[in-house]
Design a protein around this nucleic acid. Sequence first.
DNA 1: GAGTGGTCTAGACCACAAT
DNA 2: TTGTGGTCTAGACCACTCC
Lengths: 230, 230
Amino acid sequence: MKPGYREIKDWIFARIESGEWKEADLIPSEPELVRQFGVARMTVNRAVRELTSEQVLTRVQGLGTFVAQPKYQSTLVEIKSIKDEIAARGHVHRAEVLILKQIASDGARAEELGLAPGEPLFHSRILHYEDELPVQLEDRWVVPAQAPDYLAQDFGTTTPNEYLVRAAPLQRVEYSIDARLPEAAVGKRLKMAAGEPCLRLHRRTWSRGAVASVADLWHAGSRYQFAGAF
Amino acid sequence: MKPGYREIKDWIFARIESGEWKEADLIPSEPELVRQFGVARMTVNRAVRELTSEQVLTRVQGLGTFVAQPKYQSTLVEIKSIKDEIAARGHVHRAEVLILKQIASDGARAEELGLAPGEPLFHSRILHYEDELPVQLEDRWVVPAQAPDYLAQDFGTTTPNEYLVRAAPLQRVEYSIDARLPEAAVGKRLKMAAGEPCLRLHRRTWSRGAVASVADLWHAGSRYQFAGAF
DNA sequence: GAGTGGTCTAGACCACAAT
DNA sequence: TTGTGGTCTAGACCACTCC
């Protein structure tokens, strides 16, 4: 048996789906729904409150409850940890640390990280293998103040991501995905054919109110894609 | 003044954030929180229920409430309508209809659309301009049964997307993003340099329990990226 | 002032899991 | 049987918006 609040949610949702109630329409008030369904106000309230948190309705105190703007026609791409992703496919993940050292921040990178040029900066370059085939080259630059022990980690077993979410709790993420030809060194490491494009994810993370790290994730175009469904 | 349920939510959340309660830990029961905060059970219940719907906690009837698995380190890319996106940048969008006709479905495409080879199929190819520079070439194949009037639309003013969300309410979406060299005709239309890669979004939509359409959105790698923040 | 939503109480009965 | 969460009732007081 469906609970009462569920019954009411479905009833409201059906009215919106059918087009009977359109965007910005005023829907029946709580007391009205109470009369209609013969339940307590708390039950009606829960139904309407949940639909509001699901962005199906919007409420204004003193005014009423309205049908919300229909959701964007949007596609959500979820980029998971490369390690988990490979494991989920039932394959073996291996990481090879190519670079792990402190460098001096230069002009453009310094600006992106919020550091002054010349300030120290951690840089790692890690190649991720899926069953012995390289699939991702991960360049990462980390602000030392946010993760002082970065250079002491064993990134053969823990990914920088896994370490950073603990060391510098994520506050904000900014990202972009593009298609571009790889730098020569990148193409070589990923064993890519000449002229083959890369799918690149650029990501900047914030922690404790400041930039924590910047990462470039390079993938061979012929062997990698971001995919999903909803 | 913060409402009671909010107070309790924050208190629980703080305990998880600080590490005091870790993943899969059992948290105090509802009666226990009722005693602790001196409120009615409904108030505690709302706090815990909301944290559960926010995937911070998981509950098992008869067992207890536990700290949920920490959320994935994930990146969400939202791909909006190209038209809205261009408008949001304050630029002018224009669409040029290159192809709009019925064709016979062929092998691979027929299978992807759930049609028998030879069955009729609508095909459109539209070039989207941002301030007179081509930014997206949209190839779309539509199942006639799902949108019989597809060929009669004016896709210079309405995008196929806008039409389809009305004609065939979205039920499910499957997509992938990859980097690849464009077919010759595509590269030419997008005014791309030789050897320049494309950022391609492939999307399949379902409506009324069946595949409704398949789309290939091609973007010049040098002029387009999927981006966002959260 | 009348109507709306926001929140809360102090009970209640039920389903489910562990013992 | 005990303890857990799932749901519900019949009230209540408050803040807000509109007339």
